[in-house]
Design a protein around this nucleic acid. Sequence first.
DNA 1: ATTATGTATACTGTATCCAGAAGTCTCTTA
DNA 2: TAAGAGACTTCTGGATACAGTATACATAAT
Lengths: 228, 228
Amino acid sequence: MEKTFGMVRVSKRKPLREEVYESLKKSILYGKLKAGQRLVEEQIANQVGISRTPVREAFYKLERDDLVRRLPKGGFAVREFTREDVEEIFGIRSALESYAAYLATLHITPDKLSTLEKKVDESESALKKGDHEKLIQLHTEFHDLLYKACKSKKLIELINNFRDYFFRYRSALLHAPGGFQTSITDHRQMLKAMKEKKPRVVEKLVRDHLERGKEIILREISKGRVTP
Amino acid sequence: MEKTFGMVRVSKRKPLREEVYESLKKSILYGKLKAGQRLVEEQIANQVGISRTPVREAFYKLERDDLVRRLPKGGFAVREFTREDVEEIFGIRSALESYAAYLATLHITPDKLSTLEKKVDESESALKKGDHEKLIQLHTEFHDLLYKACKSKKLIELINNFRDYFFRYRSALLHAPGGFQTSITDHRQMLKAMKEKKPRVVEKLVRDHLERGKEIILREISKGRVTP
DNA sequence: ATTATGTATACTGTATCCAGAAGTCTCTTA
DNA sequence: TAAGAGACTTCTGGATACAGTATACATAAT
């Protein structure tokens, strides 16, 4: 992060530990680091060309995020998920995200509603064009916007932490048979219920949406199409 | 933590960072460290007689727990709560704890039910004797046991983290007019609904229970009887 | 009196080093 | 051959030192 005022450079660099944390996190979320992959302080430090200290601190932070777990023989590993984990996490997500959607329905403003509507419209348009990358992006954005409207910073933070666990599966989720269409239909219904100020309906729609997502992931895991 | 096998001492001491973390956390929870109190690495390190490293790591962990916040001028401070924070946190607690109670109703075994019943019986007995300390302890234990029955380690962890924010208020909560009696009545009703395998009823009872708790805390804060 | 500059202090972030623990491998002895 | 001891390797946790940054205070200049 650098700003330039004329010829004067104002540098506000993030601490190294933050940079390592974000880089590792991104690698995990995007699947560059596979579940089970072992990570060792010294190795990462040598690769990056820094000391162990910021690497260690990044590891501890990832550990607290439950994105890595500590190995008994030293080092950390990218977290793996059992079927039970998937059930557990989706259960918690359901509780949190439906609550956020409930709050969002209470608090949302008309301009935010129309932004959401625009996302759904764009999704339908992208579906017609078969632009799957765009659809994945719009799907994520719809949920980001929806939860942001709940006005609870801590809740959003929590939700995003849980969503991160399955970030690398979002493509598989949507590519499942009928995945794109179902997702758009769900979003359309949520939007409708929000316009009508029916928070309990939105809440239920989000629960069902997540239940469907969970079943898809479990099915894909069973078929060996994705690794836990 | 030391174990002794005959004359052989097996020492499994916790890392210093864990010890500092737990000690600071306890001081925060029990009100020894007041909201707003500033904490500085070097100072704590000097007081304890260790280097800064484990202190820093403990601070980061407490920060992640949202029990302390980073100060712009260096150091950390014990977290303060606005009324909005109280509302936010109780909202999230309500979502999480009611979900946990719902799961617990599905999973609980008869022996655990009778343990819960025993806690309620003991609470009524302690109320008659005016043993308030005992009542506070039993209240906490009831909830610990209830949530433990949900069989979701991550959910329990989350819930406990949120409960910790108001740990120092639990006495005020129960000492509020009619607090003890209401709490016992609530627990009795939850127990009844659990026996009857009505998870949605338990869920609602827990929501109402927490709503009441929130109102009490907000009222006590308004009256200046507790500091946020 | 006000503003600018220099210095001291307080703190953080990072690098380096040391000691210890745990696991693995090799050699020796029974 | 099997068991035990010692050496080696790999890793962590913590201590220490150094450099950088931000703030407060004192002094000099206008």
